[in-house]
Each structure stands twice: as C-alpha cells, then as structure tokens.
Design a protein around this nucleic acid. Structure first.
Lengths: 145, 145
DNA sequence: CCTTGACCTCAACTTAGCTTGAGGTTGCAT
DNA sequence: ATGCAACCTCAAGCTAAGTTGAGGTCAAGG
C-alpha cells in the first residue's frame, strides 16, 4: 500500500463532490498539479482533497478562481497548509465577508426606510429615488453604479 | 411640448447611467416595452427611468434579470408603481437580503472558529475539514454544495 | 435640401466557470 | 489475455449579462 496514498481523478471527485471535468478544469487553471502515471493518468495527493475543498469554500464566499489562485500562492502542492498560511488567507476572506455583510445591512436599512416611507412616489427614498432628483432638474446626470 | 414627455434611448441612457446597448438588451428580455416612432425609433415613458433604476437596484441586491422580470410582473408599463407594488417586491427582496446576511454570518462564525483553533490540521474545523471526516472513513461520500 | 449625430437590426464576441461529446488509451480483475 | 470501466485530450457548447461592429436609416438644425 504505497500507491494507495494517491487518488485517481474519479476518487477525488467523489471525495470532494466536484465533477471530474471541474477538477480537470482546475488543473488547467493551475489550481492543482497532480502527478501522472506512466500511462498519463492523473494521480492526486490526499492533501488535494483539502485543496479542492478550500476552493469550494472560497468560491462560496464569492471569490473568483483567479482570486483563489492568488490566495493559494504560497500553499505548496505537497504540504498541508499550516496555521499561518491559513491565518493569512482567512484574514483576507474575513475582510471580504465583513464588507459584504456591511453592504447588505446598509441596503437593508435603506430598504426598510423605503417601505416605511411609502416610497416610489416620494423624494426621500434613498434607494429608489436617487435618479428622480436629478431627472427632474433639467438635463439629468447619471445615476447609480 | 407633448412629445417632450417621451425619451429617446440615448436620453434614457444618460438619465439612468445604463448604456444604450444594455437598454436594448433589457427590452429584448421584456423588461421595458418602449413605443416606436414612425421611423422605428424607441420612445420611452418618463416612468421607464424608474423602471430601469429599479432593475439596477435589484441587480445590486443580487437578483438575476430573470428574477427581476418575475418580480416586475404586475408593474404595468404605463403606471408608476404604487406603494403596494413596492411593498410586495421589497418584501421579497428583504427576505433575500436577510438570508444572505445570515449565510455570511454563519460562515464568518465558522471561519473565526477556524482561525482560533489552529485549523487545517484538526478535526474540529467546521469549514475546512468537513471532507476529511468522510475521506477517512473508507469510501467517502460527497462534500459541500 | 442636406448633413450629421443619434438611431436601427442582427450577428458575433466577451468572461467565468464549467459541461458535453468525439475519438482514443489505460489499468485492473478475471 | 481480455474485457470494460475509468481515464485521456481537444474542441465545442452553455448561461448570464452585456458589448462591439457592420451596414443602413432617421430626424432635426442650418
């Protein structure tokens, strides 16, 4: 039991919940770098289960594959990422989460104000009427975004 | 000044901040239904400024155009949406926001637990190790998602 | 009347993140 | 030795939400 430490792509797919094609796609993007057998079949390290799970998590948090790749610089293929790797990455992710939550809460507040105020016909709705204020005063400038 | 109540697509673009091509695209999707001049040029109602702004807001909240279209069923083209229209729509949006915030907060919690616990090498990390637990007990099932 | 900028349609291209298919090879159990 | 599931590559297709370009028309001011 030595080659037993290595996983075929199908096995890895089952372990991570990813599709085989997605894993190949990730390899293409440089997110994993499996070895090959003599017959050119991929053989993954067990630690790649974690690597891929990490990708799933990060994606779930709204990171693009490019950003994930960026974050993974410094996580060597063979080594299980250690606490300080994790600290660095998770701090960055944490920031993103905080920012997203803050943004949503701001919107929720505005929205609540809107519901309360009868809105859509009034000037004070922060969310909806931003445009009207301008549209009414002659040649209106642009709105939002 | 009677045709002055109608807007050309360029004017509408300037008022909403959208590109002309985006507005045409939205028309294609059925999100606005401008009239046409004899020469086939689009003429929009002033209320379409709001309609499009609404689309921008909803998109900002993470709704897809398909979902927005769904939500806009019942907002007639010619009429300025009233308070109860708004109530209905904003309640739906509000739910989404709440759900998103809850999801992010859950993730943040897990993440914090992770940072604290040294993680990545331990069994107790909710975020990261979900897979390992399974991977270790024989034929592991799928993970996440 | 004529010019010119705004407008028209339709098709093809873009990015992200994959999936699907065709056509061929490997590796393991019998 | 052989069967066949799992694997390989490469190209094309898909969805979302638009953008870009070609080729042509409209409308309004001078």
């Amino acid at each position: 039991m030595k080659a037993n430490d290595l996983l075929g792509i199908g096995e890895l797919a089952r372990r991570t919940g990813l599709s085989v094609s997605a894993i190949r796609f990730y390899e293409n993007k440089g997110l994993v770098e499996p070895m090959r057998t003599g017959g050119n079949q991929r053989r993954f390290l067990r630690s790649d289960i974690r690597r891929l799970s990490f990708i799933l998590i990060a994606q779930n948090l709204g990171l693009s594959l490019a950003e994930i790749e960026e974050a993974m610089k410094g996580l060597p293929q063979g080594r299980t990422p250690n606490a300080s790797d994790w600290k660095r990455i998770s701090a960055a992710i944490r920031q993103r989460i905080d920012a997203q939550i803050a943004r949503l809460e701001k919107i929720r507040e505005d929205l609540d104000g809107c519901i309360g105020c009868g809105c859509l016909s009034l000037k004070k709705c922060a969310l909806y009427n931003a445009c009207d204020k301008w549209g009414e005063s002659g040649k209106g400038p642009r709105v939002l975004r």
